[in-house]
């Protein structure tokens, strides 16, 4: 593996971890919505349940918003990093182009 600039590694690493988070989020959401109802339906059916469900919902929207913002920034950073020519030594090969398969 040839040497590559450190900041590039970090940007693309960060982006990939955020991508992992985006993949986990729906699973986590599903657990948060379903498990409590199976566990204790009686205490979640009335006023307390309303607070729980809408609180969870609002939190979820904020998390998705923050995640998408972070992902967009990380993508922009990766793009910038790959466009900026690396400092000498000049013999560094260009970073590999990210195909769609990597993003998924």
């Amino acid at each position: 593996m040839p040497e590559r600039p450190l900041f590039l590694e970090r940007a693309s690493f960060h982006r990939r971890r955020l991508g992992d988070a985006a993949r986990v989020l729906p699973v986590l959401t599903m657990l948060l919505i379903l498990v409590p109802v199976w566990w204790m339906p009686a205490s979640l059916s009335y006023a307390g349940g309303a607070v729980w469900i809408f609180g969870l919902w609002a939190g979820l929207i904020v998390v998705v918003w923050a995640l998408h913002r972070a992902l967009l920034r990380a993508e922009a950073a990766t793009l910038r990093a790959s466009e900026t020519p690396p400092p000498p030594p000049a013999e560094t090969p260009p970073p590999p182009v990210k195909g769609p398969a990597d993003a998924l």
Binding site: A22, L44, Y46, V64
Partner: peptide, 28 residues
Amino acid sequence: SGLEFATIYLGPTLVFTAAWWGLRRLVR
């Protein structure tokens, strides 16, 4: 039926938490 009505909206919300990798790909 009380809070059960919220399921009709929670289903889409669940799908949209997967917007980044799921829906984007469907649209692409």
